[in-house]
């Protein structure tokens, strides 16, 4: 898929995944790259950006079989943004769908 195209939506995807519960980098990358064709690496700059914007916070948590993992948690501000992005995305994709349907007929 077109790269520029994906970039805009990935923030929304990452926020949505974290909206379901705290998660660590590898898990987010794995979940996303199973469904969308992206490199695993792509999610890390996004997570970092979201953290520096205050939309997610991070904490370290011991894991059973290895060194501690860095977990990402959606902040209240992040939740607000998620709702906003989600709404924008729904409106946008509906509009695009409408345009594409019109083209067909």
């Amino acid at each position: 898929m077109n790269n520029q195209f994906k970039k805009g939506v990935l923030d929304l995807c990452v926020l949505t995944i974290l909206g379901k519960g705290d998660s660590y980098g590898y898990d987010v990358a794995d979940t996303l790259s199973r469904k969308i064709q992206i490199s695993d690496g792509t999610v890390y700059p996004i997570l970092r950006k979201l953290a520096s914007d205050g939309l997610v916070s991070t904490y370290l948590k011991e894991s059973k079989n290895g060194p501690p993992r860095k977990y990402y948690h959606l902040t209240d501000q992040g939740r607000e943004k998620l709702t906003l992005y989600r709404q924008e995305w729904d409106e946008f994709s509906e509009a695009v769908k409408g345009i594409l349907e019109d083209e067909k007929t």
Partner: peptide, 8 residues
């Protein structure tokens, strides 16, 4: 972060 990804 990336090293952690390798470890995972």
């Amino acid at each position: 972060d990336i090293e952690e990804h390798f470890n995972e």
